[in-house]
Structure formats: C-alpha cells, structure tokens
Design a protein around this nucleic acid. Structure first.
Length: 523
RNA sequence: GCACCGGUGGCGAAGUGGCUAACGCGCUGGUCUGCAAAACCAGUAUUCAUGGGUUCAAAUCCCAUCCGGUGCUCCA
C-alpha cells in the first residue's frame, strides 16, 4: 500500500513519493535557537521523525535537510540582554535542542544548515530576484519582495490577497515599502545589530530567505516535500514559495506537510497561562521521555492534541504494558509446536463442530491475527500517518498473544512473528528502548544534572529527587532487599516480606513475583 | 469581524453513509497468587454537543444553535 499524506498545497491526500524513485528529498523548518524547545516544537519535529521512519518503512531513502535559525530579532535581543555574542548565545541553545531531540529519539536530519553559514546563498538568491526587478531596495537599505510580481502568491495558504488594497489600512510611509504585503528579504543594519557586508549592502537576512536558499542548495530547485508547524504556512512558507519560484522558475516543494498546534490542559500553550512547558520542565516533574514521545505521537498530526498530565500518565502506563509484553515474549521459552490438545473454554470457538477443534487450528488462527495486526499497522500509517489506528493494531495483537501465552498455546513461531511486529512498531514509535528499561531513568538523571548546573533545582519535583537524586536506592541495594524478602517468604514470614515490598513501592520500586523469580522495576 | 478546524463512554481517541461504535488509560467483578504485581476474562456509550432535515439506511451528508480551538501579526 502506498504511503499517502495530506498535501496542504492541493488540499488533498496524495501519494508521497520520491521524484527520483529512490531518495525522498525534503526540508523541514527547524528551530530558532533563542531558548529551550517546548513541547509544541517537539510535536512538529516528532511528526517529521514519524514521517521519516514511515517513509523508510516504505523503502524510501532519505535526504532530509533542516535549518537552524541562528540570527533573528529575538536572538539579537536575548543575546544582548545576556551580554553575550550571538554565536555564543545560539550555540548553547542549539546544543540543548539536539540533546532534547536525542532524548525524544528523534532522528537527526541528513543535513543541518545554519543561517549564518549560508549568507552568500541568500545574497545570490536575492540578486536573482533583483535582476528581474522582483526584489527592490528601499530607502533604508532593506530589500523587499514585490508580491505583485508573483501571481501565485497565496496558493499554499489559500489566501486571496486581491481584496487587500495597498495602503488602504496601512500607513505605507512607515514601512518604506511599495506594498504593505511586500516582505523583507534583507534587513538593513541597525546600530548594534549583527551585520554582514554583502553586495546588497550591510545587513542581515530576512526570516524567509534562509529556508529558500538552503533548501535549494541542498535539495535543488525542486524537491519532494517541505514540512513545518501549521503556523508557518502563512506567511513563512508562502513567502518561501514566492521567492524561490520567482528566482528559479521551477516549482519549489511538491508536497507540503503541516503539523497542527497542540493545546495544554485544554488551553493554548502560553507563558501567561502558566501551561508552557519545555521538555526539561516535564522531565524534572518526573515524566518519562518515552511517555512524552508516545503522547505527542498518539494523536494524528492533523488533529489538535490536548496535552495533559493525565495523558502523560496514561502513555506511561500504556508503554509499560507494551514493554512488559515485549519482555515476556522475548524471554519466554516457547515450544516449537503445541502437541497436547487443549479443551480450553477460552479457545477460539471453531464453527466446525464435528472436526474436533485442533490446537493447530487455534495456532494458525493466532498467526493470522498477528499478520493481520501487522498489515493493519502498516496500512494505518500509510493512511496519512494514522498513529491512533496503528497503536490499536498493536494492542489487538498484544491481547491475542498474551491470551495464547496464558493458555500455553503460544508457539516459538508465533512468538517470533510477534517480536518481528514489535520491532517494526518500535522502528516507528521508538518507545520500547529494546528492553533497556534504564534509558528513561538516564534521561531524567541528565535533566537533573542540567538543573543543578543551571540552578534550577527548584523546578525538580520531590518525587524525582527521591527516585533519582543522590539519596535514591542503588540497584544493588534494591537487589539486596529483594533477596531478603525472598528469604522471608521461604520462611513464610509474609509480614516481613510484605513490609519490604511496601517500603520499596513507596520509593517507586515495583516488585513482581513470577515462576522465574522476582523482577523489579522503577515506576 | 472574516475564514477555517473540531465537539464520540469517567478521560484520551479511531471510525466520515450500511457488520454487535476500534484501541488505550481508568474503574468494578472474576481467574491466578500466601497476599500482591503482571496477565487473561467479563462489565463499564442502546449511542456519537443540541435541534431540525435528506436517505431504505447517518456518529458520518445538509441547515441552524451552543461550546472549544486556530489563522488573518512574531509563534512549532
């Protein structure tokens, strides 16, 4: 089944393909590195990651380019306030951004392009526009794009700008532009601001030009897909199309992918609402990176997601169930075949009464269920990245296989089929961590170290301090207590055994007794 | 104001004209267990914001109303 994706440009769901039949070439608008990334940012990058992984599942190779905007108004303002050179200031936040991307298991793009390292490309693009009189220099030395010269303007965001009369509502003198809608390509130097000496005159790039220049540099005049948050559709992406296509006379990106904004606790995320969260904020509150990833991916990208703490807890529990299942199937010793017929009441009722419901039939029914789950999983993702359905397909299999295992009806073959499916699931969702339960804990510890270094210990929840701080129990200490409890149980001293278990539980350590001994995990 | 998106069980959410309305979390009861945990089983929406309409048939299409959100300006 072909991978289909909604295309903002056409307004339809269309097959996504590589124009060269092999490598999907795409561009994603990256962060402006003026602060720590918030969960809204990461919803977008997470879905671009989802797109990468799904495209790979469909056999596509990837050439993904992402920009880092490392010069703009906010950066200039914040760096000045911090008394730092711009480069020093942005380096810190760029590094933090990639740490966060790693924490969320977001794959790196093939190419990272920094605005400040691509000034010449932008200048030459503007020169190409100037040569056609589409770019013009205003009195203050800034360069603008003449929208009137690009007939397709508005085709992405479906805006009809004809109704907007130049100067009707806007005092043109203030802008020094020919038309109020014309946008800046190059901003003339202002005192104290970063500036580059160029043939255009001294100044710095406008916001939009960097993406055009860098996309064209790495991907060519035309490429397969362009991605970003929904807010970028207008004016950013609209302007990118205008300046790129006017300069190259070729269609820019063919497919446009926009991720919707999220709400936090039912409201728009904003600092004034007090519901503005960075990834680090959440880690310090004790939420797991994997749960954040899973929640952010669980609602399909074209829908508004209401991000809540309850939702994080839910995701944590759902992942825990998946991991428990994964471990069970991976570590279990499943028989080659089932020889003893089972007259289990919960066995799949076969219609053919007279033919004795052979166990082989039940086993093959399970194989079918697993394969159907596998097919459903792939189909759901191929259908405009429907992650909710993809999740459901996995849980359908989980239940069926657990049931079979409970009734000694799981064969090695079906177990392997299941593991293959889970591997596929995790190649997309990347929350199982290959059984490495400690990855989340390690990320939380890293966040703690960061909080210490940045003097933000006040943001750390007491819960996290207890579990991960210096006073928390070491693995060895837990093992010792578990051993003591096992001993107590042998002597049928259940009071002592339960006391140990309860004490550990209070410290966030959950014990599970099984045939193969005691397992524990940090909650 | 104009434009757009959405309102489905306690919560999240899929489904967008036709099998008994997926799936997850939670809750209740059962099985298992010394007791738990994990797992499984059963129960948790006679109904899809509300009111009309179209149709043999609607959560799905149309109209109106209410509510939430978004864009039109920096924003993922």
């Amino acid at each position: 089944m072909a991978l289909e994706l909604f295309n903002t440009l056409s307004g339809k769901i269309e097959p996504l393909f590589a124009s060269d039949g092999h490598v999907l070439r795409f561009y994603c608008c990256g962060p402006t590195v003026y602060d720590y990334g918030h969960i809204g940012n990461f919803r977008t990058f997470l879905h671009v990651d989802l797109l990468r992984r799904t495209a790979r599942l469909h056999g596509l190779a990837l050439h993904h380019v992402m920009n880092i905007t490392d010069v703009d108004d906010k950066i200039i303002r914040n760096a000045a306030a911090a008394g730092q050179p711009i480069a020093e200031y942005t380096t810190k936040y760029e590094r933090a951004f990639f740490e966060d991307m790693d924490a969320l298991n977001i794959e790196r793009p093939e190419d990272i392009a920094r605005a400040t390292e691509n000034i010449p490309g932008m200048v030459s693009l503007i020169e190409r526009l100037a040569a056609q009189d589409i770019a013009y220099k205003a009195e203050d030395g800034s360069w603008y794009f003449r929208i009137a010269r690009f007939p397709g303007y508005g085709k992405l965001s479906k805006k009809d700008l004809h109704g907007i009369e130049d100067g009707a509502r806007v005092d043109l003198d203030e802008y020094d532009k020919d038309s109020a809608r014309d946008f800046a390509l190059w901003k003339a130097t202002k005192p104290g601001e970063a500036s580059w000496e160029t043939p255009l005159g001294p100044g710095r790039p406008g916001w939009h030009i960097e993406c055009s220049a860098m996309a064209i540099k790495y991907l060519g005049d035309s490429f397969d897909l362009h991605a970003g948050g929904e807010d970028l559709m207008f004016p950013h992406h609209e302007n990118e199309i205008a300046q790129s296509e006017a300069a190259t006379h070729h269609p820019f990106a063919r497919h446009w992918f926009h991720v919707r904004f999220l709400l936090v606790e039912g409201k728009k995320m904003s600092k004034s609402e007090g519901n503005f969260f960075t990834l680090r904020d959440l880690l310090l509150k004790g939420y797991r990176a994997s749960a954040i990833r899973f929640l952010l991916l669980s609602v399909p990208y074209r829908h508004q997601l209401n991000f809540t703490f309850d939702g994080l807890t839910e995701s944590t529990n759902a992942i825990e169930r998946l991991r428990t299942f994964h471990d069970r199937i991976r570590t279990g010793n499943w028989p080659e075949s089932i020889s003893v017929p089972h007259q289990d009441s919960s066995a799949r009722p076969e219609r053919s009464e007279g033919e004795r419901p052979a166990v082989a039939a039940a086993t093959s029914a399970l194989t079918e269920t697993i394969r159907k789950g596998n097919a459903d999983f792939t189909a759901a993702l191929a259908n405009d990245l429907n992650t909710a359905e993809a999740r459901a397909a996995i849980f359908d299999v989980l239940r069926a296989v657990n049931t079979a295992a409970d009734h000694s009806r799981l064969t090695r073959f079906d177990a392997e089929e299941t593991i293959a499916l889970l591997d596929k699931f995790d190649s997309i969702f990347a929350v199982l961590n290959n059984g490495e339960a400690d990855r989340d804990a390690e990320l939380t510890r890293a966040a703690l170290r960061w909080a210490e270094a940045e003097g933000r210990m006040a943001d750390v929840s007491p819960d996290v301090l207890e579990k991960f701080g210096s006073t928390s129990l070491t693995d060895a200490a837990i093992d010792a207590l578990v051993a003591e409890r096992t001993q107590a149980k042998k002597q049928r001293n259940f009071a002592r055994a339960d006391a140990i278990r309860n004490d550990l539980l209070e410290k966030g350590i959950l014990l599970e007794d099984s045939k193969d001994g005691v397992r524990w995990k940090r909650k």
